[in-house]
Design a protein around this nucleic acid. Structure first.
Length: 310
DNA sequence: ATTTAGACCTGTCAGC
DNA sequence: TGCTGACAGGTCTAAA
């Protein structure tokens, strides 16, 4: 669910709120969320760890901890972080329907980042609760249980991310490198963009948006794009991801920020989930097709099908 | 060697 | 009201 902009936005919020805090303990309500190490070791090693820094790599959120460890979190489809201020009662109860339903109650709280916004009191699915030494709770909520949290020694970082492509918003994402990656792809360009080895952090929403930006049909073969098409697509990737971050991410369903608020980028999306609506450029109706088992949205006029699709 | 179903999971919504 | 099927920001694995 969260793609690069959503993870980046959460990382920035965490950076301004939990760096320097100490994790007193972790409570795990769905064991499979912890990918590594084994649960007893995870619980033992996480205790009294200081959060020294927050980083992001592709769609991975990284929490640098003391004692040369770091947490690697992948939220997959529905994972979210929610930070509860001190003084709140957290009621993680065992119900018949869902053993990890939680509810919160507390004073009206105004988060420090978006001034004026009030806290969102939705009930979620808490899979892991990090109890901070200052009394706050950092919750990992994840209805579909696909998200994974792993604890690694920092020395392993290069190994873990060896296969990840360049960061699209850094100088490592050059047109040259992008071109080389695409030439090796004999699939459609949409599929290539979803391949994290080509570029790190793009998912279904921003792949569609970037292709629309560059007026390229999603089924166009990746290895047959012209140089000017690749330049425009490169520009489009940077543009749509940057805008996504500025708008606090895209929430059409589950994504929420650290304070439980929805991202505003859904109001700025051009094609994603817009089938049947007129294209902002030419008024042609946006269409939907399935590519690589993923919903794909495009303007049939602006993004004309290439002469050779297969 | 690729491509594609299936798995992992729960929730929501449209249609009957 | 209740059931059924389609679908949802992702990625891995096994079968074709």
């Amino acid at each position: 669910m969260p793609e690069l902009p959503e993870v980046e936005y959460t990382a920035r919020q965490l950076r301004s709120s939990v760096v320097g805090a100490t994790i007193r303990e972790a409570r795990v309500f769905w064991e499979r969320t912890i990918g590594r190490p084994q649960l007893p070791d995870f619980l033992a090693e996480i205790t009294e760890q200081r959060i020294e820094g927050i980083r992001r790599r592709g769609k991975f959120l990284l929490l640098d901890l003391s004692r040369d460890l770091f947490l690697s979190i992948h939220r997959r489809m529905t994972g979210n972080f929610l930070l509860l201020p001190p003084g709140w009662e957290i009621d993680i109860r065992l119900s018949e329907t869902d053993p990890v339903a939680w509810k919160t109650k507390g004073p009206n709280f105004h988060p420090p980042v978006s001034a004026g916004a009030s806290y969102n009191l939705e009930t979620g699915h808490c899979r892991v609760c990090f109890v901070l030494a200052d009394g706050r709770y950092l919750l990992f909520t994840d209805p579909r249980k696909f998200g994974r949290i792993e604890l690694w020694p920092r020395t392993q970082e290069d190994v873990i991310f060896a296969d990840l492509g360049p960061e699209p918003l850094s100088h490592t994402f050059t047109v040259e490198r992008f071109t080389e990656a695409l030439v090796r792809h004999r699939t459609g360009i949409k599929q290539a963009l979803l391949d994290q080895q080509v570029v790190a952090g793009i998912g279904n929403i921003y792949a569609d948006e970037a292709l629309y930006y560059a007026c390229i049909h999603p089924a166009h073969r990746a290895d047959s794009l012209t140089s000017s098409e690749i330049h425009l697509l490169h520009e489009g990737i940077v543009a749509v991801l940057t805008l996504g971050i500025e708008h606090g991410g895209t929430s059409f369903n589950d994504y929420r920020d650290l304070w439980g608020q929805a991202g505003q980028n859904y109001n700025h999306v051009r094609v994603y989930h817009q089938e049947g609506k007129p294209c902002k450029r030419c008024n042609t109706l946006i269409e939907r097709m399935v590519i690589a088992q993923r919903s794909t949205h495009f303007c049939p006029h602006c993004q004309a099908a290439p002469a050779i699709v297969e």
